[in-house]
Nucleic acid binder design. Structure first.
Length: 370
RNA sequence: GCGGAAUUGGUGAAGUGGUUAACACGCCGGAUUGUGGCUCCGGUAUGCAUGGGUUCGAUCCCCAUAUUUCGCC
């Protein structure tokens, strides 16, 4: 069965919306934050720990799993869910972002993308068909179309050619997609160009996907203004009855801005990456636990936080772990950051249901950015 | 007791008679947005054991003192 998005309530004052997505691995509520598990693991966290964080959908990656261990092995294991023992829904990214980070523009052809393996330097060729076929075998709940992710600095001309090709790629991928239990999302590109976002959205929607990604907003050097514009220019042309997924965004402030504009899904490596480097989100902004002022701070990261880490450990202890390069430090902080964003989403959903999203946002930002 | 060697920041250490004393680690900050996990970027000795002397100028030369260390009795 394909996923089914149900729009349950629209905020009266903003474009924020509350809904849910029914999948073969349970129903999840939106807006939601999806932790990232690139290599079939949300780094440092077990599925049980993710459940304890109330994680819904998690993200994994076609490119990485294609290279290692290979889609055939995962298929043999019974699919990605069984392979990694995650019982809730999984979304797989198409490898499009890796095209951006690993290939040069000249390596991108109409047929597909040539680039070198980050593991051993061997030559690789990825096409829209190949990406979808790999994802079919991975058997994720949601597959993403194979797209190109041009940087914000791309010229209008380059961007126009790029989005036209991405649309053709989306169509090609959709043609070969044949997993009845997997849904497929299209991806809107176009940088911060209003006409291109509109064009990309309209043409992609014509292909009738199960949901729509808004991509190219968190590549490298995009300003927040460009990100917000990209959302504003895309969303009016996306159907109300399908989920919208802002790809790669996960800073608390950006989550609020995205939700206000009508985004339903987010994913981001930020929460787990910064955790491994000693940083955590708190209601009062991001803090760096490596700072010496936490040396003898024997209180939890946040008193009011309900995560495993905050219920059991002090800042001083975690700081010691991080400074000693002990992996438990990164683990505990990953738990906190993951729970932080998911809990934030829970509160946001409640606020939308009560038409109080604006108030929630204002209150959150007052504390977070002061 | 006699003779030799050494003494540079928190640590291990380079170095030169002449503007800002290398590097590494540590420490102190910062970054990080569809992940090329354990990374990247900054800052960190007004000072080269102490006191004299030589010199236009000394961390680098000389003398004394202290400490450490090696060898001999």
């Amino acid at each position: 069965m394909k996923i089914k998005y149900n729009l349950l309530h629209k905020d009266l004052k903003t474009n924020a919306r509350y809904g849910n997505i029914e999948t073969n691995h349970g129903t999840v509520e939106t807006p939601m934050f999806m932790p990232v598990g690139t290599r079939a693991t949300v780094k440092m966290l077990t599925p049980e720990e993710l459940y304890e964080c109330h994680s819904g959908i998690i993200l994994s990656n076609t490119y990485h799993l294609w290279l290692r261990p290979g889609e055939d092995l995962i298929s043999k294991a019974g699919g990605l869910h069984k392979f990694m023992n995650y019982k809730r829904p999984i979304l797989t990214d198409s490898g499009g972002f890796q095209v951006f980070s690993l290939a040069k523009p000249k390596d991108i052809t109409e047929e597909g993308v040539h680039f070198k393996s980050h593991l051993d330097g061997s030559k690789l060729f990825l096409t829209p068909e190949k990406s979808i076929q790999i994802q079919n075998k991975l058997d994720s709940d949601i597959a993403m179309s194979f797209d190109e992710c041009p940087p914000a600095s791309a010229t209008h001309e380059y961007m126009k050619n790029s989005i036209e090709r991405t649309i053709r790629w989306a169509e090609r991928g959709k043609k070969v997609h044949n997993n009845p239990n997997q849904s497929l999302f299209g991806i809107v590109q176009g940088g911060a160009y209003e006409d291109l976002r509109k064009y990309s959205a309209i043409e992609t929607v014509k292909l009738n996907f199960d949901g729509y990604g808004i991509g190219g907003v968190a590549n490298d050097g995009e300003s927040k203004e460009d990100m917000y514009k990209a959302i504003d220019y895309s969303i009016p042309f996306l159907p109300e009855d399908k989920p919208r997924y802002l790809m790669g965004v996960g800073e608390p402030v950006d989550l609020l801005e995205g939700i206000e504009r009508g985004v339903d899904m987010f994913d981001c490596v930020l929460s787990t990456r910064i955790a491994r480097h000693g940083n955590v989100f708190t209601r009062h902004g991001k803090i760096n636990l490596k700072n010496s002022k936490y040396k003898d701070d024997f209180t939890p990261i946040e008193d009011e936080c309900d995560c495993y880490t905050c219920k059991n450990y002090t800042k001083a202890y975690i700081r010691h772990l991080v400074n000693s390069d002990e992996s438990l430090g990164g683990r505990l902080l990953s738990i906190h950051n993951t729970r932080f964003l998911i809990k934030m989403m829970e509160e946001i959903r409640e606020s939308i249901k009560e038409d109080k999203f604006s108030e929630y946002k204002k209150e959150f930002l007052e504390k977070y950015t002061k």
